[in-house]
Write a protein that binds this DNA or RNA. Structure first.
Lengths: 348, 348
DNA sequence: GCCCTCTATGTAAACGATTACATATTTAAG
DNA sequence: CTTAAATATGTAATCGTTTACATAGAGGGC
């Protein structure tokens, strides 16, 4: 491998001069500058990043810690991060970790010394105690609970978004609105559930535990939860899924059971992944600017890095937007006769 | 930051001994070993990876170069890579790049010195000349054309998979089978198209240029292409989309036009992303083990790394599997009357 | 007691960059 | 013409590891 010494020898200058040219630091005559650029290019010289980071104690790399994250959300968030990172001359070191405290701690250790800062996405509520602790290295918490003022954090307007969607359903006349929740230990899931409940309360509707089902943020989970809801004596007239994957699973289950959407059942999701508009029917959802979420997280981290982690901590929230397509509609005109029938049958 | 010297001082030994303990190299008495582990742990010592890589000339990092890749394919492939990398003590440095020659070259340069090897996914056919060149650093080409024997490569059994799917459609009686292609400059797309044509030829069906539409691998592209196909005088009875995203777009377009699937039109995709089974109707597709694809690519790369890139090059191919769900069926019983009608109308 | 072989440990030289400081050269000011 | 300031370049210390080599003590066989 060709080193800075080789370049210096070839150009008949000292290594210091080469370094100055390549980093634009200190004064160098125009002639030598050109010469060195030419030689370095010809020899395909690339500085050894390890050596550089040893002396400068910077790595030009930012770490990204992600939980087991599926589907489009994952790719979009990374895309946003990579764009911003690259634009600022940074690389992305990505690592999946278990969502729990230990997993994050291990992954964090493995990254120490390799990165200038870390964006951590650990929606697991149990990790809170560990996360909200001051760190020597800049950290941005993404979509994670953060109560203290020790760490920068960026979250989605989960609660407000959910509340708006559910209120919209209420506005269409629905009163029996079910939710397919995510894991109770998941931050986003918890916030979306909170928004759902607030909206109901605002409308004077008493929450019904039967209408709150868990779907684990997967299509399969949404599918199963929907079948449970359909088996209820008093079916809901609308289903709010805490993310689009579960909403898609719900649509699939409803179709299977011959329940028409939105005529007999409204369905809404959360995230507004690109696919949402291509569902049958096109899915109403709460739009989240996923890519910007990633981009902004990196921006915040870079700010922390350039200020040597000695800056007032920020807590930001990206806003969501209601997107009504055709999967949500009014409440079914007449109460479906089978319901009473069922009840009688069972009570017999 | 605490260095190896600090640990040595604290444990009252030399840095060499500390290094030996931490790397399990050379003989150390059991007592000192325990002592040093205890001290290092207590002081939260983490070796400086830059310094280490300077002397060992290894980085324990592998680079991943990806084109603008959307959706679930992206996340799954990365997941597979990360799993295998972590299991072998490696990190993942991920970078998106433009698919063209220049983009890859730039990204490759930026990674040099930071990684021990690179997995490059550059399906762009134009990049071939650049890619199939011997490199000092181990490289695995993923889903990219590779003609020479200079580089390891791993691809999907595109042609065979496509051929099987189209043959299956033929077996169901279809003769007018359309394809929604990807970009003509994309390797996977080209191979799938080839498989489609081979299957037709095998069945004695003459290819019809009207039935080959381009969809750019996106939902929107599939949607648009399908509308074009529906506008044809002689509609196809089946559509084979070169990936699932386009198939989903196709389903959406068909629904919009009131064409029932599979009664009036069969639709098949490629990739078998997790979502496919939740479509309406559940999508027949060619299953690709995406995660394994990523895992295997990393395995091949690690082999190259441990053998100092001095090993016989391999060209591997992961096999696909036909998954028939309910979006593909027999050919419509009677020729739909409107078709003749249309023709007469226009010929008038 | 002598010599050889092990085992345990320490010393110091790399690795490839950056940069403070020193030095040489040029330019400008008086 | 002298001298100060500015410019261009070189020298060498430094960053935190690993590791070849040196050293020292402990056993063992004779």
């Amino acid at each position: 491998m060709v080193t800075i010494k080789d370049v210096a020898r070839e150009a008949k200058v000292s290594v210091a001069t080469v370094s100055r040219v390549l980093n634009d630091s200190g004064p160098v005559s125009e002639d030598t500058r050109r010469l060195i650029h030419e030689v370095a290019g010809r020899m395909r010289y690339v500085p050894h990043s390890g050596a550089r980071s040893l002396i400068t104690s910077r790595t030009d790399t930012i770490g990204v810690l992600l939980p087991d994250l599926y589907g489009e959300f994952f790719s979009e968030v990374i895309r946003g991060m990579d764009e911003t990172a690259q634009r600022n001359g940074y690389h992305l070191l990505i690592s999946r970790s278990y969502a729990d405290k230990d997993g994050i701690e291990t992954a964090m250790r493995a990254m120490r010394g390799r990165v200038d800062g870390v964006v951590t996405m650990s929606p697991d509520l149990d990790a809170e105690s560990f996360l909200n602790v001051p760190s020597t290295i800049p950290i941005v918490l993404l979509c994670s609970v953060s109560r203290g003022n020790e760490v920068d954090s960026l979250t989605i307007q989960n609660c407000r978004g959910a509340r708006e969607m559910v209120s919209d359903l209420v506005g269409r006349g629905h009163t029996r609105i079910a939710i397919i929740k995510g894991s109770p230990r998941n931050y986003d899931a918890a916030e979306r559930l909170r928004g759902y409940r607030i909206a109901l309360r605002e409308a004077g509707i008493v929450p019904d535990a039967d209408l709150e089902r868990e779907g684990g943020f997967t299509e399969m989970g949404g599918y199963a939860a929907t079948h449970e809801l359909l088996a209820l004596l008093e079916r809901p007239t609308a289903i709010f899924a805490a993310n689009d994957s579960m909403a898609i699973g719900a649509l699939s289950a409803l179709r299977e059971s011959g329940v028409r959407v939105p005529d007999e059942m409204s369905v809404a999701g959360f995230d507004d992944i690109p696919l949402a508009r291509f569902m049958d029917p096109p899915l109403s959802s709460v739009h989240v600017p996923i890519r910007e979420l990633g981009a902004r997280a990196v921006e915040m981290l870079l700010y922390g890095i350039t200020h040597k982690n000695d800056h007032p901590r920020r807590r930001e929230r990206v806003s969501t937007e209601l997107v009504i397509r055709s999967s949500t509609g009014g409440v079914p005109a007449e109460r479906p006769p089978p319901r009473t029938l069922n009840r009688e049958l069972i009570q017999t």
